[in-house]
Structure formats: structure tokens, C-alpha cells
Design a protein around this nucleic acid. Structure first.
Length: 720
DNA sequence: AGGTATTACATA
DNA sequence: ATGTAATACCTA
């Protein structure tokens, strides 16, 4: 720091006292100094101080730093540009006339000022990387809010928000913006009670917020496009975020059909880095006012944004898998609040979080009346275990006779969808009789068949020699799920006269024609059928419900609704068969086509149990010692609860660098190391305090140079 | 003393 | 994180 350190203290002067004096002197007696550089280089005449966001993700460096603006960079060093600066200890040390240490790091120039609060000599900006101002005040404020919400650093969020630079894309000029289009008609929005009013408000320049429970069927991309058009008509911009490239392509198509080309940008990971940056720049420069894209597009710097919208917030792709793991819904909520724009969350299903937005009064519901829902949704039948038990033929063929009949009937008039859970997504072994998942007696992990006769726990490895079902006492086990491929083969033999197509992880079909065919798909990979499917079979539903996860029911319902929404309405003879117990809440919600009712019931239950989203949770994961020391140092708000720590089974560990092993040569295998997880829970309203506390504790740990890391995550995706 | 491992500290 | 200065530690 300064030479004060070397002054001998008077008698009794402890180091704390010295530090105190130093601080006092600095605060009280040293006025704001004009910036000086070490070698007194010529500075910009106006606003010679640049506040810089240094691109280091480290939490305790998460603040702005002041640099001097040399005269020759004065013109280029505008707020928002990318810069390079010297940063790091020793970078300002002058020894034998040469700078030592401290490398050049990237950063963003956030602001120009006349003076600095820092009294020491300022380093000068090293370069302005390009004159393109990529970090505007809105994006900065949003990124700051997201970092705070998720106990992360601004640099981490900006890494998600600003695409890497591409010189060629930057050099090319963006086209001139088009004038605002006329307000669109309501189109199929008129099927929803408050739909047209929402569009009107958008077109008038207001900022309505809504949770929209979409009717099943193919209209949602066009409906989103109309909402975008309404926002554009008000002279503002608009943003739509969807879970994947397929659905982005459908909204893209709808927007082009409604508005013509050149009015919107498509921001997905599928276009290469160059194209992506080009599109992003066109948005930032205001030459394009509307955006549709996937996750990263949530930060797109739309000029004067009037509407942020997202589709299917329950889809896991909306949760970013890079630190600090922000969720699109939460980011867009923050954005709506910060930028005072409209908010539209649409889905065929309804997440608990969406229901809460309505319950709290933050958003209004947009729903169709029951009669319309009934007509647009297919007729759903269930096949439970009791039906199956009476159905000998079905047991043998794995396909209940009801499903058989519905498929045969449906194939007369069009394609039939068969949804099969993904292998590996569900418990491996289950009771032969009642299908309760087979679990380890010691740790409740899933059992798997190891050798011919040996059963082992997949988590703790404990052998199980005398398994019997804890629910019904049976001794038989069965492999739980038959994959899509084998299902397709079986169905192909059963219906030799129709083609069988599959759509799954490795080979996803976008669409199939309206001719009779069997289409076997895993959840999320269902193709759209021209004119809608005649019927759908949702197989092995019990397996989707059997997952040991708080969201298992919600998730199963979401996937059933998504598949069923591709089926014709019951007024056109659309039929669905779900193989699951009809007494279960998600199954009933599917039969009644009542996603909102299901979400409200779940919400009430979560409130009672103190689970998210009613309370807010965060997790900290690391070695037991690391977690313990983290807990000791963290200064939680008084209303916070600590749940755990408990050991984390290997399968449930967060992905990422396997760290924490001692120095090489110690012979410890990281795989053998135990990890603990602790959950921290706060009531509504204390989320910000929790995040701040976690961030402070993490920063202190890092500053101390703690060896084994603790991974902190706000809103963990699964809390077991 | 003189050198090396370890820790503390600051980053403009 | 990362580099430097301060220090603790070790050998002759």
C-alpha cells in the first residue's frame, strides 16, 4: 500500500490502531486528488478517470477500479467499450524504472469521471480493444442485479451476457432500422379472456405482466409473434426466450410471417460465433428491435425494451449451467422490474413459480374458459396398475389393451405419438408387482443389477442379497423402462401396415406429415404433426413419477401436457392414454387438463413445507471440512435455517472441476473423497440477505486463499 | 549470514 | 487469481 506501513508505531500502537489511523487520515485529511499516473503521462482533458469492470470472476474483486485515461485514448474510451488494463499486485511497482508483475486483463469501461475516490497514483488504460460500446447502463444494472440475486460476481454474469468479440462482425455495418409496424390484430389471442386486452396494452406502450396458460395446439408461436408485434407497434423493442433451437425456429418463422424479414434477430447457439455476434450487434445498435432466442438471449441488449417473454419456463434448458446459474424466468422478472417493461410467461403447463407470480398479484393470468379448454384438449384415459393386472394380454405385450385400441383407432385417421421415458432418466429396477422403485436399505440410493445375482446400490455400493418390496412384499424385480428403439421395434411388429419413426436424443425429428404412422419419441423430442396427432400413448408414466425429486410430479405432468398438446382436440377425436395410476394428482390434472390447479395445489404444499419457491434456498457443497468452515464463517440473517450438512451421494454431485485433492503425491483419489451438502433456507423477503451473506462468506474464503472450494448455488435445481 | 519455504496482503 | 513483500525457518 503506502509508505505509512513502514513508519514505526509509537508505544502501544498495535497494527489495528495503525490501520485505523491510516484510514482516518485518508478519509479526513486527504482530499480527492487529481488523478496522477506513475510517469505523469498526458491525460484526457475532460473526465480523465475511467471506472473499469475488470473481467475477473473472483468474488472479492467484484467491484469497479479506477484508471487514468491517456490523452490518445480519450476519444475511443467511451462508456461501454472493451478495454485492457494492467491489473494485479505489483503492477504499479516501479523497480529499476520498469513495471513488474501484473498482467494485462480484459475489462469493460463503465463510466468516465472527473475524479477518483482512490488517492494513489492511477494506472492508465492500456488499450481500448474496440470502440463498440457493448456494455450499456441497462445491461450493467441487470447483470449487477442478477449477480446479487445469485450470490455471483458481475464478471461471471457478463460472460454469459456479452458474446465474445468478432472483429469482422464488428466492422460490418448493421442495416438501418425499420419504422414501427402497425399494431397487429389479436388473431387467436381472442380465444383467451384477457388476451386481446393484453395486446392492446402492449401496443399502447403500457407494461402489463401476465402468466399465460396456452391452449393445446399449434398456435403459440404465432401468438408470441403477435405479442412481439404489439410491442414493436408501440415504438419499443421485444424479446422472446424459448428453451431450444427447434422452438426458436418456429417463433422465428411466425415472426417472419407476421412482420416480414429484417425486423427481428434469431439468437441461438446453433449459429456460429461470428453470425451470433453479428445478430447481437444488430440488436445492440438498434437496427433490429425484436429478438427471439435461447437462454443466453435473455440478456440481449434490446433498445428500449417493451416486452420480455418466455415460453415453457419448466423446461430445464432455461436454467443456465454456468456460474452463477441464473434462470431465464428470474432474469426476465428482474428485467421487467428494472426496465419497466411488460412480461409474458407462456406455457402449456404451469410451474409452481408461475402460479406464484399470479398468486402474489405480480402477474395476471391469461387463460381460456373451461369449455374452450375441453374442446381443444384431447380426451385423456388412464390405465392404472389394477387395470393392467386384470389385463393379462397387456402384461405380456407391455401395451395395455386400451392403448392398443386407441392406437389402432387413431391410425385410421392420422399419426399416433408414443412417448417413452428416456433410459437413465428413471430408476433402474422396480418391484415386478407394484413397480415401487428398488432402493438401498442403507442410503435409499437406486439399486442396480451388478453380476447375475448380485444387487448393488448405485450410490454407496452396498450389496443387497435379500431384496423384497417394502410396499407389497413381492420378491421379483423388473427392468423399469424399455427404450424408444425397442418400443419402436415392438410396435412395428404389432402394426406392420404403418411406418414407425423414432425421435430421440441423437436424432430429433421436427415434424411429421399427417399420414398414419407411429411416432416413438422421448420427452421433449416429440415432432409436431401436420394437422395434429390422432392419438398419443404415454407409456411407463409411473416411472416418470417415481423419481426421487421434489419436482417429479410437476415434471411428469409438464411432459405429458407437452405431448398431449400435439394431439387434436377432443372435438376432432383426439385421444390420449396415459399408463399411470389415476388417483395420483398429476394424472388427475392431465385428465382434467388443469395445469394451473395442479400448480396451485403444489404451491400450497410447498408453502406448508417451507420449500421453494415460497421460501428461498441455497446449497453449499464441498468437502466436509470446507463446508463446516464455510458455515462457521458465514453470517446468515437471523431468520435463516441450516439444513444439514449431509453427505452427497456420488451421482448427485454437481458437475465441474473435481477439486479439493491434496498436493500431488498424497495418494488421495478425489472419487473416494466424501462431499457434504448443506441447504440454507430463508423465508420470503430474505432472499437478498441470504445471497449477500453467502457472497461475503465466499469472498472472505477466497481472499484467505482457502484450498478446498465450496460451491454455492442459489435456487439449486434439485433439493432431493 | 544467507538462502529458501511459507504467509499475508493488495490489486486503481 | 496472482504476484510481491514480509516472515519464519533452515543450514553452516
Amino acid at each position: 500500500m503506502s509508505s505509512d506501513d513502514k513508519q514505526p508505531g509509537g508505544p502501544g500502537d498495535g497494527p489495528e490502531q495503525l490501520a485505523l489511523i491510516r484510514e482516518t487520515v485518508r478519509k479526513a485529511k486527504v482530499p480527492r486528488a487529481k488523478p496522477r499516473t506513475w510517469r505523469g503521462a498526458a491525460l484526457a482533458k475532460e473526465l480523465p478517470v475511467a471506472r473499469v469492470m475488470v473481467d475477473k470472476g473472483v468474488l472479492h474483486l467484484d467491484r469497479l477500479w479506477d484508471y487514468a485515461v491517456p490523452e490518445e485514448l480519450d476519444a475511443a474510451a467511451q462508456p461501454g467499450v472493451r478495454v485492457r488494463v494492467r491489473f494485479g499486485a505489483g503492477s504499479h511497482q516501479v523497480r529499476e524504472g520498469r513495471r513488474e508483475g501484473g498482467g494485462l486483463v480484459d475489462g469493460y469501461l463503465v463510466e468516465r469521471r472527473a475524479e477518483s475516490d482512490y488517492t494513489g497514483p492511477l494506472a492508465a488504460l492500456a488499450h481500448v480493444v474496440s470502440p463498440e460500446p457493448v456494455l450499456g447502463p441497462e445491461l450493467l444494472a441487470l447483470a449487477r442485479a442478477v449477480a446479487d440475486r445469485y450470490a455471483g460476481s458481475l464478471a461471471d454474469v457478463l460472460q454469459l451476457a456479452i458474446p465474445p468479440r468478432n472483429g469482422q462482425a464488428e466492422a460490418a455495418a448493421s442495416p438501418a432500422p425499420l419504422p414501427a409496424p402497425a399494431a397487429p390484430g389479436p388473431g387467436t389471442w381472442s380465444r383467451y379472456g384477457r388476451g386481446p386486452a393484453f395486446l392492446d396494452a402492449l401496443a399502447r406502450g403500457a407494461a402489463p405482466r401476465a402468466v399465460w396458460t396456452a391452449l393445446p395446439g399449434p398456435h403459440w408461436p404465432e401468438e408470441l409473434a403477435r405479442a412481439v408485434a404489439a410491442a414493436l407497434a408501440s415504438g419499443r423493442g421485444a424479446l422472446v426466450v424459448v428453451p431450444d433451437g427447434r422452438r426458436a425456429a418456429r417463433v422465428d418463422e411466425a415472426l417472419t410471417a407476421l412482420l416480414g424479414p429484417g425486423r427481428h434477430a434469431l439468437l441461438t447457439a446453433e449459429s456460429g460465433p461470428r453470425r451470433r455476434y453479428e445478430q447481437w450487434l444488430a440488436v445492440r445498435r438498434g437496427s433490429v428491435r425484436a429478438v427471439v432466442g435461447t437462454r443466453a438471449a435473455m440478456f440481449a441488449p434490446v433498445r428500449d425494451v417493451g416486452l420480455v417473454a418466455l415460453w415453457d419456463d419448466g423446461d430445464g434448458s432455461h436454467s443456465d449451467d454456468n456460474a452463477p446459474f441464473p434462470h431465464v424466468r428470474e432474469v426476465l422478472e428482474l428485467r421487467a422490474a428494472h426496465e419497466g417493461c411488460a412480461f409474458l410467461l407462456g406455457a402449456t403447463g404451469c410451474t409452481v413459480e408461475a402460479a406464484q407470480l399470479v398468486e402474489s398479484g405480480w402477474a395476471e393470468p391469461i387463460v381460456a374458459d373451461r369449455a374452450r379448454v375441453r374442446a381443444a384438449a384431447p380426451l385423456v384415459r388412464t390405465v392404472g396398475d389394477h387395470d393392467l393386472a386384470r389385463d393379462g394380454a397387456a402384461r405380456a405385450a407391455r401395451l395395455p389393451s386400451v392403448a392398443w385400441e386407441v392406437a389402432r383407432e387413431g391410425l385410421r385417421s392420422g399419426p399416433v405419438l408414443v412417448q417413452v421415458p428416456r433410459r437413465g432418466y428413471v430408476p433402474r429396477l422396480a418391484c415386478d408387482r407394484c413397480r415401487t422403485p428398488a432402493r438401498c436399505r442403507r442410503c435409499a440410493g437406486p439399486l442396480e443389477a451388478h453380476e447375475v445375482h448380485e444387487l448393488c446400490c448405485a450410490w454407496c455400493g452396498e450389496a443387497e442379497r435379500e431384496w423384497h418390496c417394502t410396499e407389497c412384499g413381492a420378491f421379483g424385480l423388473r427392468a423399469t423402462v424399455v427404450g424408444a428403439r425397442r418400443t419402436a421395434e415392438e410396435l412395428g411388429r404389432a402394426f406392420p401396415e404403418v411406418p414407425v419413426r423414432t425421435s430421440g436424443r441423437d436424432q430429433v425429428l421436427d415434424a411429421v406429415p399427417g399420414r398414419p404412422a407411429l411416432v416413438v419419441a422421448t420427452p421433449g423430442a416429440e415432432p409436431v404433426a401436420e394437422g395434429g396427432y390422432a392419438a398419443a400413448l404415454l407409456l411407463d408414466g409411473w416411472a416418470m413419477l417415481g423419481r426421487p425429486d421434489l419436482r417429479a410430479g410437476e415434471e411428469a405432468l409438464r411432459r405429458w401436457l407437452a405431448a398431449s398438446a400435439l394431439v387434436r382436440g377432443q372435438d376432432e377425436g383426439g385421444r390420449v392414454v396415459v399408463v399411470a395410476e389415476s388417483t395420483l394428482r398429476p394424472v388427475q390434472a392431465l385428465v382434467r387438463w388443469d395445469p394451473v390447479g395442479h400448480a396451485l395445489a403444489e404451491l400450497a404444499e410447498r408453502a406448508e413445507l417451507g420449500f421453494p419457491p415460497v421460501s428461498r434456498m441455497a446449497e453449499a457443497v464441498g468437502t466436509p471440512q470446507a463446508v463446516a468452515s464455510f458455515l462457521q464463517s458465514v453470517r446468515l440473517p437471523p431468520e435463516a435455517e441450516v439444513l444439514g450438512p449431509v453427505p452427497v451421494p456420488p451421482q448427485a454431485r454437481p458437475r465441474g472441476r473435481a477439486e479439493g485433492a491434496p498436493a500431488p503425491g498424497a495418494g488421495r483419489e478425489p472419487a473416494e473423497e466424501r462431499w457434504d451438502r448443506v441447504l440454507l433456507r430463508v423465508p420470503p423477503g430474505s432472499g437478498a440477505a441470504l445471497a449477500a451473506a453467502l457472497k461475503a462468506a465466499q469472498a472472505a474464503r477466497m481472499a484467505r486463499g482457502a484450498t478446498d472450494p465450496v460451491r454455492v448455488r442459489v435456487d439449486p435445481p434439485s433439493i432431493g
